[in-house]
Amino acid sequence: MTVLMAAALSAAILVPGLARAQSSPSLAEQVQQVQMQLQSAQQGTLSLLNRIDTLEQESRAQQGQIELLQHRIQQLEQQQKDQYLVLDARLRKLEQNAAPVATAASDAAAPAAGVNNPASVGAPASAQPTAATAKPPATGPASVTPAEQAAAQQTAYDNAFAFLRNGDYAEASRRFRAFLQRYPHASLAPNAAYWLGESYYVTGNYQVALDTFHRLLTQYPQSDKSRAALLKLGYCQFELKQYANASSTFNRLIATYPGTEEAHLAADRLRAIPQQSSGG
């Protein structure tokens, strides 16, 4: 009886200990759980990074669309101004042409009135103006007015930009080159030079695009496109793996145009340079 009680007491002591040993995970299981948690965290981080990259790409695409819309608004405003100037020039021509017509009409009416004029009765026939002896008004090719010149430039520029907007970059580049050759000093020349460089950049011709943006900054340093051209110059250097030059260009942009959208984009690409250069 005593032996049975001792055995029962031992079982009562060992059973809870065994239960606790079975319920607590082993060291290997704990390590496995930690590894699974780390893997899940890494996947979440990778997903977040991918999302951030996607958002940055979408932001750049939207920025490009905004720039195109802003440019189109400027085009429409310029077109309205040019149309007004052309209309004003045509009205002035009509007024100038109307004055000789009125003078000719009064001269034609003068002989009829001279029938009752005694002083004109005895005048010789050779003194009377006739259609054969009357001198015709001087005619010649009309000179191009500044308004018409501006309208012609705008039309050529719009045609080139239409090809760019429709994705025909080869034809767009050809037309922008022709525009710059014909109108190198036009007010739209810096814009044409910028979009010419853009047509090269989007097709991967980074060296040609780099030369184009550099030429824009040299020829038109005070233009509104200088800031965007400087950014694209850095982008071209980055794509060509000229990381030292790209870093210098981006730092120059940030220092010259602080707080601008181009400066923010330059800073983003500047942070990517060490990763690219170490990987290359």
Rank of each mutant, 00 (worst) to 15 (best):
Q32L: 12
V86W: 05
A104G: 10
A19C: 07
L48T: 07
N50E: 08
A19K: 06
N50K: 13
I73N: 10
L94Y: 05
L49A: 12
G44W: 03
V86I: 03
A28G: 11
L18I: 07
Q57F: 04
A99Y: 09
Q43F: 06
D53P: 02
A99M: 11
L91F: 05
E67H: 10
Q63D: 08
V31G: 03
Q83K: 04
Q63Y: 03
Q79E: 06
A104Y: 02
G44S: 10
Q62L: 15
L94W: 07
L38W: 04
A61T: 13
G64Q: 12
D82R: 14
V86G: 00
L87F: 05
Q35R: 13
A98K: 01
A19R: 08
E58Y: 01
V34G: 04
E56V: 01
S59N: 09
Q62T: 09
L49I: 13
L38K: 12
Q96Y: 00
Q78A: 09
L18F: 15
Y84V: 03
M36V: 02
I66E: 14
G64H: 04
E67N: 10
L49Y: 02
H71K: 07
L68P: 01
G64F: 05
E56Y: 06
I52K: 11
V101D: 05
R90G: 01
L85I: 02
Q42D: 06
E77N: 06
